[in-house]
Design a protein around this nucleic acid. Structure first.
Length: 621
RNA sequence: GCCUCGGUAGCUCAGCUGGUCCAGAGCGAUUGACUUGUAAUCAAUAGGUCGCGUGUUCGAAUCACGCCCGAGGCUCCA
């Protein structure tokens, strides 16, 4: 709502002719005049329709505040469309204007000029400092603040730690000795503050390794990926997709933008704690998805599903999901506004099947993170549930704790504020003590009904499934963040940082010592397969070795006169080296190939994303 | 809108109590020499209206004012 407030000596109007939006009025209402009145020119805007009552409340509050300041006893409500390019429908506008009139009439003498008429008016502005004011009313800055965001602030949580024996301990009573990260995680969660106050180490690494960078030409939190970053991301995406499909999921693809006024979506928006990007096109209000839920649930709604197909799973690697996170929370790739999230949904027959699936997906998530290079010591587990769920499934929750074999942060709500009754998350805690969720699974008891998703059971009856939301790895960018942060931590501990071989952009670097060794180097590169490159630059061996180390290359093979004679390679294996001591091994091409084969089998394969010859490479940063 | 910090070569930054050490360093790039055995070979060359504008001054990267852009924080007004 836009308001233009003018303190006037007098304001008078006369309705001349109706427009097609004109409200029906008595002849007596066609003329009006007030003296010493505050005249409020008002444009009701599109987004005011989302919560008309709140707009009326806020509008009348602001108008009376000004009336109070200028000591006006009378108020003229004057519809004035020209204040906004983004008007509401005439009906909504009239309703809101009437609402204002009603609300203000309690304390003031109010006249409302009729809506939708061509009116003549004359006005005399008093011209004192406060006599001309404008106000904009935008609830939540013109966006819809979802009900879930509001309830997240209200939700009453009980924070506990579940110990290995299944006892729940109040968080302030728990002895955190030896569980430093769990303590930090708990504090972080309870504080609910996500603001960034220092730059975490992965930011330098992501740029220095030429993986990811800021894109000044876009919005904050929308990144550019250089070839090496794109490769790692692609490998991770494909790996997680494979794992989801191993669990029986079917890959689908769904749109990235949706109509805000679609009835089921509107309700879902209200239940999800995130801010959206909103765009307008052809008079439609669209929002960019923040997950694949809508697409898959809308698909599920249209499907014919027998109990024989359950549990039924669909997965999409969402490139992208969008969440308009607050600016202060964005740094590097820990938290983004556009991110890639593997999103799998399971339709389960009933709660018991849902619980069974939940456990499988919990275990798969552990294994997925492990294969990527993050083990149980690298993250903390949170399990959140409603009190009711816990009382019915105490043993099950204890099982989950037993599987990870370490204490777990518990958050319990006495009421269900969200669409789920149970969820877990694996949270990476970085060196700045910030926690970020990776894998998560939720049991959703609300959306099957909202989207009207049904299956037919053994007796031919339609039933609603229980839904599970699962991201086996969490957002891919965040996995990369965690890997880089872990590498930084390793460096601090005096170890050589590296990625798993299957994720390394260059798996083998071949360094010919002099120009005469190059043909052999290229030959070995061809012969070996995998992502191999050759440092054929005119640099010293020392420089080439150093550069290979700075790129975290797992295998570095030097070829000189000795190797030409012996036919062997001298390979430095990073995983067995220390910063002071390079672990060098003589081996032939077959040995090396077998070694890499075992380290990469079952993982996605991609070719080298850059020219094989280092002499031909451009610099990105 | 306000406050703080920042904007100097492709990158990272120094200079900033105004004046031939103020236009610099390292890395990177180019060229040349070297043909190299495990964490930076040597040398040369090219690259900048020091964010933009206006002032002050004999003289401005440096001081003042205004503006633009970025990061962070605060906040909503005559």
């Amino acid at each position: 709502m836009q308001l233009l407030l003018i303190h006037s000596d007098y304001i008078e109007f006369e309705a001349k002719r109706p427009t097609k939006f004109a409200e029906d009025i008595e002849d007596s209402a066609k003329k009006g005049r007030l003296e010493d009145a505050l005249c409020a020119f008002i444009a009701v805007e599109k987004f005011d329709e989302d919560d008309p009552d709140a707009v009326v409340a806020e509008g009348s509050k602001q108008i009376s505040e000004v009336a109070e300041q200028v000591h006006a006893k009378k108020i003229m409500i004057y519809p004035y469309a020209h204040l906004s390019p983004n008007l509401s429908t005439p009906d909504s506008a009239v309703n809101i204007l009437k609402g204002l009139q009603e609300s203000l009439s309690k304390e003031y003498e109010v006249v409302r000029a009729p809506f939708g008429w061509y009116k003549a008016f004359s006005l005399s502005c008093k011209g004192h400092p406060l006599s001309e004011l404008s106000r904009s009313i935008k609830l939540g800055e013109g966006e819809i603040v979802s009900q879930a965001l509001k309830s997240e602030a209200k939700a009453v949580s009980y924070w506990k730690i579940m110990d290995l024996d299944g006892t729940l301990i109040n968080i302030d009573k728990f002895d955190f000795d030896g569980h430093e990260n769990l303590r930090k995680f708990g504090q972080y969660e309870m504080a609910k503050s996500r603001a960034v106050d220092a730059v975490p180490p992965h930011v330098d690494l992501m740029r220095r390794l030429e993986m990811v960078d800021y894109e000044p030409g876009s919005d904050s939190g929308n990144m550019r990926f250089y070839p090496k970053g794109r490769l790692v991301k692609s490998l991770l995406e494909n790996y997680v997709l494979d794992k989801a499909m191993d669990m029986g999921a079917m890959e689908v693809e769904t749109p990235i933008m949706y109509d805000m006024d679609h009835p089921t979506l509107k309700k879902y928006l209200d239940r999800f704690p995130a801010r959206q990007y909103q765009i307008e096109a052809e008079k439609k209000r669209l929002f960019l998805r923040f997950a694949a839920c809508f697409g898959q649930f809308l698909m599920g709604h249209d499907m014919t599903i027998s109990y024989k197909s359950l549990p039924l799973k669909m997965v999409e690697i969402t490139r992208y999901s969008f969440r308009r996170e607050q600016r202060g929370e964005l740094v590097g790739i820990r938290r983004l506004r556009a991110f890639t999230m593997p999103d799998m949904h399971t339709m389960a027959k009933d709660m018991s099947q849902a619980i069974e699936e939940f456990k499988k997906q919990y275990e798969t998530s552990i294994s997925v993170l492990n294969e990527i290079g993050l083990d149980l010591a690298d993250y903390e587990v949170a399990i959140r549930f409603t009190k009711d769920f816990f009382e019915d499934n105490r043993e099950f929750v204890h099982d989950l704790v037993a599987i990870v074999n370490k204490p777990v942060l518990i958050e319990m709500w006495d009421e269900r504020f969200f669409y789920f009754v149970l969820k877990f998350e694996f949270n990476f805690v970085d060196t700045l003590d910030k926690a970020s969720a990776l894998s998560t699974v939720q049991i959703d008891v609300e959306n099957a009904e909202r989207y009207d998703i049904t299956y037919v059971d053994e007796n031919g009856e339609r039933r609603q499934p229980i839904l599970l939301h699962c991201s086996p790895s969490g957002a891919i960018e965040r996995v990369m963040y965690a890997l880089l942060e872990k590498a930084a931590r390793e460096t601090d501990r005096g170890r050589l940082p590296m990625f798993q071989t299957w994720l390394s952009p260059t798996q083998v670097r071949i360094i010919p010592i002099a120009e005469r060794h190059q043909p052999r180097a290229f030959h070995v590169a061809q012969d070996l397969g995998f992502r191999v490159d050759v440092d054929d630059r005119d640099e010293t061996v020392g420089k080439k070795i150093r550069d290979a180390g700075r790129e975290w290359i797992p295998y570095v093979a030097v070829i000189g006169d000795d190797e030409l004679v012996s036919g062997l390679l001298t390979v430095t294996i990073r995983s067995e080296s220390t910063p002071k001591n390079a672990a060098k091994f003589k081996m032939n091409v077959d040995d090396l190939r077998k070694k890499i084969q075992t380290e990469t089998s079952g993982k996605p394969q991609r070719r080298l994303p850059l020219p094989m010859k280092l002499s031909e490479r451009a610099k990105f940063i």
